[in-house]
Each structure stands twice: as C-alpha cells, then as structure tokens.
C-alpha cells in the first residue's frame, strides 16, 4: 500500500469510528429511556440484553481503534493526576442500568487516592475489565483499589466459574508478546489493556495486567498495576 493510501485509510478509520460512536450514543440513549419506562420483566430483560450487546460493541470499537492507533504510533497519551476512584465510579455509572437489570452486585473496596495516569485510556481499560467480569460473573463483582510498593493496584474479581487453564495460558503468551493461535475479541481486549498498562511508567517501573482465578471466589480475577 502506498503512503498516500495509508493516510487516507487512517482518515477513513477515524471518520468511521466517529460515526459509529455518534450512532451508538443515540442507541444507548434510546435504550436507557426505554429501560426507564418499561416495567414488564420480560421486556426489561430483553432490552437489557440489547444494551449489553451495545456496550460490548462500543468496547470492541474502542479497543480496535485503540490498537490501531497504538500500532500506527498515533495514540494520544496525556498523563494527569487523577482520582482513580472517580474513574471507577464513572465506569460503574455508565454500566448502571446493565448491572441493575442483570442483578449483579458490585462491591467496592477502594482508597480515594490521586494517581498519575491517562484518565481516558484507563477509563477504556476499566470498561473492558468490568464488562468482562459482567460476562463471567455469577452475581457479584468485587473491585479493589489499593496502593502497594510498586504502585496502584486495581483488581476486579468475579464469582463465576473461573477461567480454564487454556485461557490463562493464552493470556500468559499474550502479555509475553508471543503469537496467539486463536485471535478472539477477548484476546484483543486483553492485549489492549496490557498495552495501555505498559504506557504507564515510573522510576524504571512499567505497568502490567495479570489474569488469574481468585482463590476465594473461584471466579476470574484481573489485576492492573499502574506504577
């Protein structure tokens, strides 16, 4: 592909993502209104499914475009002291109706500390991690925000069945930078999270993500460390 073509492709992607985001905004708004009006349990459940799929799509677009920007070295990264709890609460507020209709309880154990992060990128990552937990949880998600020697640790733990070893292995190869046999949306979302974590550096330390099964709940657990 010539340079000229690549440039115009970049513009096409940018414009298309913008259009999709505008449209999704409208769909989201209509769905929120309908969910607020309806009382019939079956209708509510169906609308809530539709909303879940819509949020998933939004996430896929974010990560797809984010990875494209990363690869073309045009991702915006702007660090700012941010109260990360506010970002977490924003993410939860965005998923509010979904959590309500899926009857998922969220337990928040967080220190309200300011940390040096790119708030837009970390918001995207939180959205991905939370949505993933919503997908796999039984009925409860715990979110822990704590400071340790290496930095700020954000852990999201669900009480589902946990990840099979093959998924954990695949995640391991992914963060190790090895090529993956089965590229899935789940893989790409984790890849995006890992890359965003890596962009956060401090005193020679780099951020990272880690996937495991939580010994207490038996469900999946993802940790994001920001130095």
């Amino acid at each position: 592909m010539s340079e000229k073509n690549q440039l115009s492709f970049k513009k096409v992607i940018g414009a298309s993502v913008k259009d999709m985001r505008n449209s999704l905004g409208q769909v989201q708004y209509k769905l929120d209104n309908m969910l607020a009006e309806k009382t019939d349990a079956k209708e509510l459940s169906e609308l809530s499914d539709a909303q879940y799929e819509m949020v998933r799509m939004q996430n896929v677009i974010n990560q797809l475009h984010g990875l494209y920007l990363l690869e073309s070295d045009t991702l915006t990264v702007q660090m700012l002291e941010t109260y990360v709890l506010e970002l977490v609460e924003d993410s939860l507020a965005g998923l509010e109706t979904l959590l309500k209709h899926k009857q998922i309880e969220v337990e928040l154990d967080a220190e309200d500390i300011s940390w040096y992060v790119d708030p837009h990128l970390i918001a995207n990552v939180l959205q991905i991690i939370l949505l993933n937990a919503i997908r796999y949880t039984e009925n409860k998600i715990s979110l822990v925000l704590s400071q340790n020697d290496d930095g700020l640790l954000i852990s999201v733990i669900d009480n589902g069945k946990g990840y099979p070893q093959s998924v954990l292995d695949s995640f391991q190869s992914l963060v190790a930078g090895e090529s993956i046999a089965n590229v899935s949306s789940q893989n790409t979302s984790w890849l995006y999270c890992e890359k965003v974590a890596l962009l956060h550096k401090n005193n020679e330390l780099k951020g990272y993500t880690r996937l495991s099964n939580d010994p207490d709940t038996g469900g999946g657990r993802i940790d994001l460390l920001i130095p």
Binding site: R21, N22, L24, G25, Q26, Q28, Y29, D32, Q58, E86, E89, D90, A93, G94, E96, T97, H120
Partner: peptide
C-alpha cells in the same frame, strides 16, 4: 468523549 450516559454526565 461520546457516547456517554446521563449518569456519567451527571457525575462529571
């Protein structure tokens, strides 16, 4: 950044 919900707007 778009899209956002009313709940997010309220918080911001």
């Amino acid at each position: 950044s778009k899209p956002f919900t009313q709940a997010v707007l309220a918080r911001r």
